[in-house]
Design a binder for these strands. Structure first.
Lengths: 227, 227
DNA sequence: ACCTGAACACCGTTCAAGT
DNA sequence: ACCTGAACACCGTTCAAGT
């Protein structure tokens, strides 16, 4: 599940092109982190010192730029999965993965606001996802064999659990300052208790299969990226 | 917690004004339900047969229109709280409230995409919220006295739990058709198991107080309503 | 090959002009 | 009082023209 190198381009780019691409990525990373996914592309282009046309030459769509930036975050998740696998205690391994993910969501507005299921339509994201799923599957099975995780949980549940976590974390974000810091940990705790075998009651629906998850095409633009 | 009448206007509106207001609300209700909160105001105005200027005379901001439409959904939630209070079994009462809420979220894209914490800034929403909180508090206390709900849960946790539910439900929505129907019930089930006392472990953060929740001003526009 | 910036089709919102 | 629709300041995206 180690981080992969980003797509190698067909043929080498011209010197100024690689430089602009890098400037664009750096500018986008900062701008998105500060202002969320709604920052104007013009702002990002200006920050990078290039025209808007150049931005769209490198990233055909604003979403593509966002995905490229998000890739760093996903690499972070992949790393936390590796760490979770390395933990001695299987339950602590799962806790580590979910904590790291939620912490990421609470630090970077971009991740939680933009990482909707529409991203399943992006090819690069999909490849990352596949790799991460394997690691998560191992963590869950290990937890189940140790009797620390409820038996009816599947790896395919994880995206939805992360989404639930994101919903709570997102709700915390604008309250930051007025509300106890790290409040999201409370709801992570609640959710974790739901993953344990002790209080487990039969679930009213079966989990989706891996194939079903990947069946989504690029959804008709919605959410934070519509426009 | 019974539904209140919408704000009574200072002085009676002219006949054509009340008619236009109603047409606008009906058009917005349909348009938002179909296309989510991103539908253009021009589309709504055209659907209602009025000019865009008229729309903004009745609803100074697109968000105000959305809040007015959402009010129906909130009335539905208030009703489900009353039903939850009427249930013989305290646990079933809580389940009823959360199920009804999630069902609402899964039926109407608007509710789940727009009901972020920015709405706390809206006065009308705030009044509704206050009324609902009381009912929820009674349901939770009743459950705790019966030993069916974990002791460290507070009414102020509910908005975050609903947000978590919304995160999972929102993640399900675009997968509709590819994924088992009613998949959100699975994650509601997981969450509910986290609310039970059986598997409860100490939570790493204290719940916010009611005052903290209401401290939010209108957040600098973000999310689905920015622009 | 790559970059530039004017231009296009949108968006939420405003406001002079009408009745 | 209320309505209308042209106009404004944006937005993401495109494309002829330059180097």
């Amino acid at each position: 599940v180690s981080p992969e190198a980003p797509d190698a381009p067909e043929r080498p780019l011209r010197a100024d092109a690689v430089r602009n691409r890098e400037l664009l990525l750096a500018a986008a990373r900062e701008a998105f982190a500060e202002g969320g996914p709604d920052v104007a592309v013009r702002t990002i282009a200006k920050r990078a010192g290039v025209g808007p046309g150049t931005l769209f030459r490198h990233f055909p769509t604003k979403r593509d730029l966002l995905v490229a930036v998000l890739d760093g975050a996903f690499a972070g998740m992949a790393a936390s999965i590796d760490e979770g696998l390395a933990a001695e205690d299987p339950w602590e391994g799962l806790v580590h993965v979910l904590t790291a993910t939620a912490e990421l969501q609470s630090r970077d507005r971009t991740v939680l606001e933009a990482a909707g299921p529409e991203l399943f339509g992006d090819e690069h994201f999909r490849r990352r996802m596949d790799g991460m799923m394997e690691g998560i599957a191992r963590i869950i099975v290990r937890g189940q064999e140790a009797g620390a995780v409820r038996d009816d949980l599947t790896p395919e549940d994880l995206p939805f659990i992360v989404a639930a976590l994101g919903g709570a974390t997102e709700h915390c974000a604008p309250l930051e300052g007025d509300v106890p810091p790290g409040l999201w940990r409370r709801y992570l705790g609640l959710l974790l208790d739901g993953l344990r075998p002790e209080g487990a009651h039969p679930l009213p629906a079966r989990a989706p299969t891996h194939e079903q998850l990947l069946a989504v095409k690029v959804a008709k633009g919605s959410g934070a990226l519509a426009g």
